[in-house]
């Protein structure tokens, strides 16, 4: 970034010939620019142009009037959203689930990658890897179905086992406020933790083996090697993935939560996404949904900026 700044200031002071040389540079790398074009077009068409639709959040969008024809209402939808009694409940539910998935699920993917990395038998390693990737390809509907069969109080496998072993009553896993969050996180770990190891494993494969040799020479144990060689080597990857994860901090798996929600656990389970679906889409209130979505994006944006600043403070590169 700094080099680019320098070149810009230079061209500003220099004469016409250098402007020509800049053009010549452009010309020289023309094929690289051409390669960039499709990607650029993609971002403009599918990422930037749709941003225009955000004005919907400040209008009372009526489908038959169209986006331009609808009436401007300023911050009305935001006022309704922030003003409703359940706002803080939604906010807390979303934040807590986001937090749990970040502090529990995210480290587990790293630990799992480290464990896989320590396996010496290549065949066995591949076998385990494939096995832990499989759940990722199941849809949430299937997983919700499995959870139901295992956990229902009416003859669910786990509840039958609990009843059989302790002789006590069935645990209301599916219809209680206490079990909702653990359930969601456990499902998330079961489904996606294996898949989440992929990037870490790639990073681990890139660690210079000479470092391990040197550490062994110095008499470092397996644990010491892990702590002083492996982890520092993949630190930047961890930081980048962590920052990116914060960007979607509030985007919890809509489908997963929606499928697990019911009357009893709604007070801890309703998050922004399910609320938007229920109120916004099912009732056709597009402007209101957009306002809530915009709010979520702003929170995600702020989190990314903050995390990036923090990462730089600790001497890491960050994502930009």
């Amino acid at each position: 970034m700094s080099t680019m700044n320098v070149s810009v200031t230079k061209t500003n002071v220099k004469t016409a010939t250098s402007r020509g040389s800049r053009f010549r540079g452009l010309w020289k790398y023309r094929w690289l620019y051409a390669f960039m074009l499709p990607g650029l077009l993609y971002f403009i068409l599918f990422r930037y142009v749709p941003l225009w639709g955000l004005i919907m959040a400040f209008k009372n969008y009526q489908p038959h009037l169209g986006l331009m024809g609808s009436e401007w209402v300023g911050f009305k939808h935001f006022e309704r959203f922030f003003g409703m009694p359940e706002f803080w409940q939604l906010f807390r539910n979303t934040m807590l689930l986001g937090l749990y998935s970040t502090v529990i699920y995210f480290p587990i993917t790293i630990i799992m990658a480290l464990l896989l990395n320590e396996i010496r038998n290549e065949m066995y390693k591949r076998f385990v890897q494939t096995l832990v990737y499989v759940p990722h390809f199941l849809s949430w509907v299937v997983i919700a179905g499995i959870s139901y069969v295992l956990l229902t109080t009416e003859g669910g496998l786990i509840n039958e086992a609990i009843k059989g072993m302790t002789g006590g009553a069935a645990v209301e896993f599916l219809t209680s406020t206490e079990w909702f969050r653990p359930l969601i996180i456990l499902q998330l770990i079961w489904k996606d933790a294996g898949w989440g190891t992929i990037i870490f494993l790639a990073a681990l494969a890139g660690v210079n083996t000479q470092l391990y040799e040197a550490a062994r020479m110095d008499g470092a144990s397996r644990i010491r090697q892990l702590w002083h060689v492996t982890l520092p080597s993949i630190r930047s990857v961890i930081v980048i993935l962590f920052i990116l994860r914060l960007g979607s901090f509030l985007d919890l798996g809509f489908e997963q939560i929606f499928l697990m929600l019911n009357a009893i656990n709604r007070e801890v389970g309703e998050v922004f996404d399910t609320y938007v679906y229920r109120v916004g889409l099912q009732q056709g209130q597009f402007s209101y949904s957009t306002a809530v979505g915009l709010f979520k994006s702003v929170v995600g944006f702020i989190l990314v900026i903050l995390a990036n600043k923090l990462a730089k403070l600790f001497g890491e590169e960050g994502i930009y």
């Binding site: 009526q62 489908p63 038959h64 009732q283 056709g284």
Partner: peptide, 12 residues
């Protein structure tokens, strides 16, 4: 539903 009522009233 409100979206349907307003669409109907708007001549859709």
């Amino acid at each position: 539903q409100s979206y349907l009522i307003s669409a109907a009233q708007g001549g859709t």
